[in-house]
């Protein structure tokens, strides 16, 4: 076990964890921040996406020992950001969610996309969101919501 000071959504959180523990489980089990979901555990589905220094990152495969002082943003904190807020609003407006399990990851990826690409094309969306799987197949509404958020932000 080791003690880590993590910067989560702008707050310093102290956790004791085995160095090999994936960030996902530190967030969910130690910090009780359950908005970030466990899907596949091998970075194949995107449900666990958080931001590390603004980079959309699969938290299920990043050991806590590699986080260091990087800024972690989770679904609980992304709404404090204008782009994050716009995406969440668009998600509600377009009624994107079906079962909802993957949507934390979808939103975190959509925010990363819109921060890099203010007016994403269909191709941009398909490429960037291609690592986020949705078993309910809400892909069409996800694309509409990303475009709606882009409109709101311009």
């Amino acid at each position: 076990m080791a003690t880590y000071q993590l910067n989560v959504n702008g707050q310093t959180k102290k956790v004791d964890a085995d160095p090999s523990t994936p960030l996902l489980w530190v967030l969910r089990e130690e910090l009780k921040m359950t908005g970030t979901k466990y899907g596949c555990g091998i970075s194949a589905c995107g449900a666990c996406t958080v931001h590390l220094n603004g980079v959309a990152t699969r938290s299920c495969i990043v050991p806590v020992s590699l986080i260091g002082n990087q800024k972690i943003t989770t679904i609980e904190g992304v709404g404090a950001d204008p782009v994050g807020r716009a995406v969440q609003n668009a998600w509600v407006e377009k009624d994107v969610v079906q079962c909802g399990y993957c949507q934390s990851g979808q939103i975190m990826s959509a925010v990363a996309l819109l921060k890099a690409t203010t007016k994403p094309t269909d191709t941009n969306i398909e490429e960037s969101m291609g690592g986020n799987l949705c078993r309910c197949a809400t892909y069409v509404r996800i694309r509409e919501a990303i475009k709606r958020a882009a409109e709101q932000l311009t």
């Binding site: 495969i61 990043v62 050991p63």
Partner: peptide, 27 residues
Amino acid sequence: RGREGRGVPALSCIGCHQEVNAESTGV
């Protein structure tokens, strides 16, 4: 690949591959 060989936003190489091998997760 992405334009610069670093993936695309939300699916970039460094979104999984950290600065060193992650032995416990095999990445």
